[in-house]
Design a protein around this nucleic acid. Structure first.
Lengths: 259, 259
DNA sequence: CAACGCCGTTGCGATTCTTGCAATACCGGA
DNA sequence: TCCGGTATTGCAAGAATCGCAACGGCGTTG
């Protein structure tokens, strides 16, 4: 099924290279210019690509906006992720959240609450910033270097608590550490009294989609408490993500989970 | 370019029929089940489709989430829509906003301000509800009947001002009138002292993407003021949208603009 | 001013990829 | 165990696609 892949490859290329020319597209797809011309015309007619006035450069078409919207909807209705959240809650005893990257923030879309009377829970549908949450840091850390830098340099890391990282350079270093560690930690950086760890959610093609966080009150969800369960959490998350058709943890993270 | 269209048709079908089986997909695409099987496998490998555990039903894949996100980005960076907003501002003298439908609200993404010292302007990046803004009503009115009903019946029309429509049945009737009229009117339903008219933005394939509104203070942006420029506005919007690769106004609206 | 280079588009024959069929494999229920 | 319902695979026929070469538009250059 070669030609089907070509359509998808073309859209992916347009995503990463807005304003590409026909020649570039033909080059990347390894086809003749004439074939690329015919292909792009078809895609354009379907509204999945658009050209500038001159007809020389291609962009993603507006119809893809509604595609993405529907994809988020169906993603949420899918019940394949809930078991992951539940298993992480059972292991940790704390609330578990799933958030997607959306408009430069993390959008909370799914939640499983801690059974404890004292618990932390963020309403579904609300947004959290990237720089001061474990969710955001896990997501950022999972991105390719270039994209991560672009995002970090584009945001304004405003102070939320005394622990908030407000310097972009420090944040980038923290993201390096997060990447090496395999999971993100929020040490009361977004809200006083709240601590989280979070794991990036990466699809089978390696694209970062969002993150899953385990959130608890700082007096209980201490470093020691995290250390006690982190191996189980990493193992369970890796299993669950793979079972749900995602990439699972990266080799480095998986290595740690094998300890 | 038949096979390229097939991929796109398949995704569109999955959007409208989440959980479709292979048989249904083959049926819609007018191909043999075996071909559909091979096609869907390819799409699935690319992350654009996903199956349930049993492998019997298909859904949109998580990778499409990032596709949609990038499409919004490129949509905003495109400068083909700005001229439309500017021309509408010049005709009306009021501020013009462009919003996309996003998570059951209208997301403001582009703005051109009125030159007047007294003006209304909504920050880019903020959301407005569907039921009490011209943007939302124009978008809803442009949808197919079934989808419109589904959306309206799903939302909670909370009161914002004395003029807010809080009854879903009344709202549906208002949307019928909006559709017939060709543009939406907000009579201080969202904010006291603010009036708007809005036009739906529909892509070349007939999919509603968002809306464009012209917003002014109620003392100046009166029914009489609107009547004075409405024909010019409709004509300019129709021209501009078509030039930018969108559907332009519907025949009914266009008919009015020919008056 | 004409020739050139660069870009995207079109007509056409060769070929590659895709298709539909039939057979196979799988699962659950009778 | 067999049946009805799925999805998948091997294979030959066939159709859609490909690459080529030629064309037309546009800006630059000699």
């Amino acid at each position: 099924m070669k030609s089907a892949s070509r359509v998808i490859d073309a859209i992916h290329f347009l995503r990463d290279h807005p304003g590409a020319s026909l020649g570039e597209i033909a080059d990347v797809l390894r086809v003749h210019k004439s074939s690329a011309s015919r292909l792009m015309r078809t895609i354009e007619q379907q509204g999945w690509a658009a050209r500038d006035e001159a007809g020389l450069t291609y962009h993603m078409g507006p119809t893809l906006i509604s595609i993405g919207r529907a994809a988020v909807d169906q993603f949420l209705r899918s019940d394949r992720l809930l078991p992951i959240l539940e298993s992480l809650r059972d292991i940790s005893g704390e609330s578990v959240h799933l958030a997607l990257f959306d408009h430069y923030e993390m959008l909370h879309v799914m939640r499983v609450d801690s059974p404890d009377v004292i618990r932390v829970s963020c309403p579904v549908g609300t947004w959290d910033p990237l720089h001061c949450t474990a969710l955001g840091k896990a997501f950022l850390a999972s991105l390719p270097d270039e994209e991560r830098r672009r995002l970090v340099l584009g945001l304004k890391p405003e102070r939320r608590t005394p622990n908030t990282i407000t310097d972009r350079k420090v944040l980038l270093a923290e993201l390096e550490a997060t990447h090496a560690r395999g999971y993100a930690i929020d040490r009361e950086e977004g809200r006083v009294g709240v601590r989280c760890i979070a794991l990036a959610l990466v699809d089978a093609q390696g694209r970062s989609v969002g993150a899953i966080s385990i959130t608890g009150p700082a007096f209980r969800w201490t470093q020691r408490a995290m250390d006690r369960v982190i191996d189980d959490i990493l193992a369970a998350a890796d299993r669950g993500m793979r079972a749900a058709g995602y990439a699972g943890l990266t080799p480095r993270r998986a290595a740690r989970s094998r300890v």
